[in-house]
């Protein structure tokens, strides 16, 4: 740890008169599990979208591996090693689970259209390797027997896992998870927490997640950042953030303290 992976420098994103993200400064070190929390509409997802290039922030820089990625297209940023999942699952519904992962492996394949049409042995070999790896990933997330099902026909929990597997197929350095446990029951949430920990420990990933489930956030995060009304109001270890009056105020108005820590 210690090496800086992502450094968002005073990012500002406006929509018309509304400033959705206001001069947010954020650092994530390699190997961390970092969380971003905040009330609804605080600008968390917009901030994610800024990092992945879906939006281009008006001000600030986004340093990733010490290179500025602000203004790059989404696909270029994916090449640099940032993958994400979505709050409301966005799989390619009309494609099978296996194909979804194969799409995720896009940037690591070199097949050209001509090669595919003429069936070069190099292309065929690569396709076999890809298939193999995709299947491994599918097994890794526990969907080994569901490879031929259309993504839209999978159960909700499986869809979440498939989405993570698809993001993993990019072999990213930084994985962004947007509310990975949304709509899950406590048991599923615990499994997901274990799963995220595993990702970091086994695959050496750096993970940055948006989450509403405080228990999960407080127990797995190395660093928690809190946003409210587009600005970052607090940052630090879970223990620190839980006690920060600014955070408590944001969540509960000016209500009694230590509600957050009780929750955790």
């Amino acid at each position: 740890m210690g090496e800086l992976l992502l450094h968002a420098m005073t990012i500002t994103k406006r929509f018309g008169g509304l400033t959705a993200v206001n001069a947010v400064e954020l650092k994530i070190e390699r190997g961390m599990i970092a969380s971003l929390i905040g009330p609804n509409g605080a600008g968390k997802t917009t901030f994610f979208n800024c990092i992945t290039g879906f939006y281009t922030p008006e001000e600030g820089r986004i340093m990733f591996n010490n290179r500025d990625i602000r203004g790059l297209r989404t696909d270029q940023i994916a090449y640099r090693g940032i993958a994400r999942t979505y709050q409301n699952i966005r799989l390619f519904g009309a494609m099978t689970a296996l194909e979804n992962i194969l799409v995720g492996m896009h940037i690591h394949l070199k097949a050209t259209p001509i090669g595919s049409v003429l069936g070069f042995s190099r292309t065929r070999r690569e396709e076999r390797e890809a298939l193999k790896e995709a299947y491994r990933l599918l097994e890794f997330v526990g969907l080994g027997d569901k490879g031929d099902l259309l993504a839209s026909n999978l159960a909700y929990g499986f869809q979440r896992r498939l989405e993570v597997a698809r993001a993993l197929a990019l072999k990213p350095q930084l994985l962004l998870l947007d509310e990975p446990t949304a709509g899950m029951n406590p048991q599923e949430t615990d499994e997901m927490m274990e799963f995220i920990r595993n990702l970091r420990d086994k695959l050496n990933l750096t993970i940055f997640l948006i989450e509403h489930d405080m228990k999960l956030v407080m127990s797995i995060s190395d660093q928690v950042s809190v946003m409210d009304y587009g600005t970052k109001i607090s940052e630090g270890t879970p223990a620190y953030v839980q006690k920060d009056p600014a955070v408590i105020k944001a969540y509960l108005g000016s209500a009694p303290e230590e509600v957050l820590s009780e929750q955790a």
Binding site: T52, F54, R73, T74, D75, A78, Y79, A83, R84, Y86, R90, L91, F92, V103, G104, H106, I107, R166, L170
Partner: peptide
């Protein structure tokens, strides 16, 4: 959008 986020 998602396709683009996959690097396409």
């Amino acid at each position: 959008d998602v396709a683009e986020a996959m690097g396409i």
